[in-house]
Write a protein that binds this DNA or RNA. Structure first.
Lengths: 147, 147
DNA sequence: CGATATATTCAAGCCCGCTTAACTAATTAG
DNA sequence: CTAATTAGTTAAGCGGGCTTGAATATATCG
């Protein structure tokens, strides 16, 4: 099918443009917030997983517990993460974004959303509606593949 | 208009899911290649801008010339970037991706493309075609806004 | 030609994020 | 109760990436 080839090509071009832009924006966000890639990555994960432990976090980030502990400690001191004792197991800690931490990450998402909204400004209403439907499909499909 | 509100909401949800996934994938790509966020960011920029100078690169990355020079030097030693003299101005260097560097970045883009292709597998042919059209529109619109 | 500007590199030093290894404290197994 | 396991922290050390400031080499202006 010609459609298959075209499909791959379109997606690849999109990924190329998008990754380029993504890198730039993320760098700017890092500079603006003064946070590192690692730190933002941790905060983003925390937004998706409420109340995670230090070891779990380290495992999911692919770093040692020690590294996770240190990273978390910095974020706690910045007031972005709340570290409380797990009532059921006093060895464990329950990590959670503070309101400030949540707001910060949401601001980053907002910026990305804004970019997409901006680039669609030039489109017709009909085209915008198609973009909405397509993004809805992609979002739903992506959610179903999550771990 | 209700459409506007819905539009923002859809885009925001998409950005949320996408950024989460993006962070994970990028981290994996960093680990797999052994390259840092900065290094990959530089390589991606080089793919878009053929033959850039050290100062220009530094300016676009928001770092000093010295930092850019050092970063480039590491990438040259890894065989990912070619640094040659500018024939018109022997002070300046012309930086360019080597075939290896280009292949590496393309592999990253390929991975991202593959992810999108995977999540669209569950869609109907009709829906997939709509996604194609939407991504084409977004890609073109994004290209027109580049500096 | 001499002074100045430009492109890049070098050197010293700082902070961050990672690792390993040792440590503390709480839970669980025998 | 003792021993082993589990969760997390702490400490020392390494390399990356950044900065400032000086050095080098080339280009340009007067």
């Amino acid at each position: 099918m010609q459609t298959d080839k075209q499909f791959s090509e379109v997606v690849r071009e999109w990924a190329k443009v998008f990754m380029h832009r993504s890198g730039r924006d993320f760098k700017r966000f890092m500079d603006a917030t003064g946070l590192s890639f690692s730190q933002l990555n941790i905060l983003m994960r925390m937004m998706h997983e409420d109340c995670i432990g230090v070891s779990d976090l380290g495992e999911k980030m692919g770093i040692t517990n020690a590294a996770a502990s240190q990273a978390v400690d910095r974020l706690v001191q910045m007031g972005l993460v709340e570290r409380s004792e797990d009532p059921h197991d006093r060895r464990a800690k329950r990590l959670k974004l503070t309101p400030d931490g949540l707001a910060l990450i949401k601001k980053g998402i907002e910026a990305r959303s804004q970019w997409v909204e901006n680039i669609t400004q030039s489109l017709t209403t009909e085209q915008q509606e198609m973009v909405i439907r397509a993004l809805t499909l992609l979002t739903d499909a992506a959610r179903q593949m999550e771990d």
